[in-house]
Amino acid sequence: MTLNLVKLCVGCDTVEELIAWWKAEIGEDQPWKMRTRQTPKRAAELVDGGSLYRVYKGFILSRQRIWAVDTVGTGPASRCEVTLDPKVILTVPTPRRAFQGWRYLDAKDAPPDLAGAVGAEDVPSELARQLREIGAW
């Protein structure tokens, strides 16, 4: 069964802002990696078709496919690096409360891609988020 991760996107309010930051700070030619302190124990399930879903200001708005989960370093200095697909896929805005670190997200609970949602092809992500927030979508 496919397993996903969900993580807060701190410092960026929109998907576009995250992509612009990545291009300016890291560079388009560099691999996209998310670093975290704890290595997921279910890493094999994450690499088998899972995605990293990001929460912006209380809403899941995007995802990226997980390519690899690696532990870097040893002992107390060890960290986890999650290598992600550079393609960022917009999702249907889905409310999510704040939390620390990352959480597992089952495939059945993951929001659908925005491109696949009925009537959502031409809706800007900010408008979609606002509609979802007031319960109109």
Rank of each mutant, 00 (worst) to 15 (best):
M1R: 14
T2H: 07
T2E: 09
L3M: 11
L3C: 04
L3W: 02
N4K: 13
L5G: 00
L5C: 01
K7L: 11
V10M: 04
V10G: 01
V10A: 06
V10H: 03
G11P: 03
D13C: 12
D13F: 09
D13Q: 13
V15F: 11
E16W: 01
E16S: 06
E17G: 10
E17H: 10
E17W: 07
L18W: 13
A20K: 10
A20L: 08
W21L: 14
W21F: 13
K23N: 09
K23H: 10
A24Y: 08
I26V: 15
G27A: 11
D29V: 12
W32A: 10
W32R: 13
W32I: 10
K33T: 10
M34W: 14
T36H: 07
T36Q: 10
Q38W: 05
Q38G: 02
P40E: 01
A43V: 03
A43S: 11
E45T: 02
E45S: 07
L46D: 01
V47C: 11
V47G: 03
V47E: 11
D48P: 01
D48E: 11
G49Y: 07
G49L: 08
G50L: 04
G50T: 02
S51V: 01
S51G: 02
Y53R: 00
V55E: 06
V55A: 10
K57G: 10
G58A: 13
G58S: 11
F59H: 14
I60L: 06
I60V: 15
R63C: 13
Q64E: 05
D70W: 04
T71C: 05
T71P: 00
T74A: 13
T74H: 09
G75N: 05
G75L: 09
G75K: 06
P76R: 08
P76G: 03
C80K: 03
C80H: 03
E81T: 05
V82S: 01
V82D: 00
T83N: 02
T83V: 14
T83Q: 03
K87F: 03
K87W: 01
V88L: 08
I89S: 06
L90S: 09
T91C: 15
V92L: 14
P93H: 09
T94A: 11
A98T: 12
A98F: 13
R103E: 02
Y104A: 05
L105F: 00
L105K: 00
D106C: 07
K108M: 15
A110C: 15
A110H: 08
A110P: 09
P111Q: 07
P111H: 05
P111C: 12
D113P: 01
D113C: 06
L114S: 10
L114F: 11
L114K: 15
A115E: 07
A115S: 14
A115W: 07
G116I: 12
G116V: 13
A117T: 09
A120C: 14
E121T: 12
E121N: 05
V123K: 08
V123T: 13
P124F: 14
P124D: 12
S125H: 10
E126C: 09
E126F: 11
A128D: 08
R129F: 02
Q130I: 15
Q130S: 12
Q130V: 14
Q130Y: 09
L131P: 00
R132E: 11
R132F: 07
E133M: 14
G135H: 06
G135I: 13
A136V: 11
W137P: 08
W137V: 15
